Amino acid sequence: MTGTRLVIDSSKLQSAELREFLSASTANLAVLPDFAWFEVYKQETVDAVLALLSVIGDFPEQITVLKSGEVIARLNLGLPSGVAAMERQDVAPLIREMIHVISGPRREDPIVLQQLKDLWSSAAVSLVGMHEGAIDIVTSLPEMSEQMFSQHEIRIIRTNGRYTEEMFASIFGAAEQIWETLAEGYGLQWRSMLRDHTMSAYLFRYALGIVIYLLWWIGSGSPKLERVDRIRNDLIDLNFAVYATYYDGFLTADRKAKWIFLNLSRALEAAGTSGRG
Rank of each mutant, 00 (worst) to 15 (best):
T139P: 00
T139L: 14
T139E: 09
S140P: 00
L141R: 06
L141I: 08
P142G: 12
E143T: 12
E143A: 14
M144E: 06
M144V: 00
E146F: 09
E146H: 10
Q147H: 04
Q147I: 10
Q147Y: 05
S150I: 11
Q151S: 07
H152N: 10
E153D: 14
E153C: 04
E153I: 05
I154D: 06
R155T: 13
I156V: 13
I156R: 02
I157Q: 01
R158G: 07
R158P: 03
R158L: 04
R158D: 03
T159E: 15
T159D: 14
T159L: 11
T159H: 14
N160I: 07
N160H: 11
N160M: 08
R162F: 02
Y163Q: 14
T164E: 14
T164Y: 06
E166Q: 14
E166S: 14
E166T: 13
M167D: 04
M167R: 02
M167C: 00
M167Y: 01
F168N: 05
F168S: 02
A169Q: 07
A169G: 01
A169H: 06
S170K: 15
S170H: 14
F172S: 02
F172G: 01
F172Y: 15
F172H: 10
F172I: 07
F172M: 01
G173M: 08
A174Y: 05
A175F: 03
A175L: 00
A175T: 04
A175E: 01
A175I: 02
E176V: 03
E176R: 12
I178H: 06
W179H: 14
W179Y: 15
E180C: 07
E180D: 07
L182N: 02
L182T: 06
A183P: 05
A183G: 09
A183R: 05
E184V: 06
E184L: 08
E184Q: 05
G185V: 05
G185Q: 08
G185N: 10
Y186N: 09
Y186K: 14
G187F: 04
G187Y: 04
G187R: 05
L188S: 03
Q189R: 14
Q189T: 12
Q189A: 13
Q189G: 01
W190R: 08
R191H: 13
S192A: 13
M193N: 01
L194Q: 15
L194R: 09
R195E: 15
R195G: 05
D196N: 13
H197S: 12
H197L: 00
H197P: 01
T198K: 15
T198M: 15
T198V: 15
S200I: 00
S200A: 15
S200E: 00
A201T: 08
Y202K: 08
Y202F: 15
F204D: 03
F204T: 02
F204R: 04
Y206W: 09
Y206T: 04
L208D: 06
L208Y: 03
G209W: 09
G209N: 06
V211D: 07
I212H: 03
I212W: 02
I212C: 09
Y213V: 00
Y213F: 12
L214E: 11
L215K: 10
L215A: 08
W216Q: 13
W216H: 11
W217R: 01
W217V: 02
I218H: 13
G219Y: 10
G219F: 13
G219D: 12
S220C: 10
G221W: 08
P223S: 10
P223W: 12
K224H: 05
K224E: 10
K224M: 07
L225T: 03
L225I: 14
E226T: 11
R227S: 11
R227K: 12
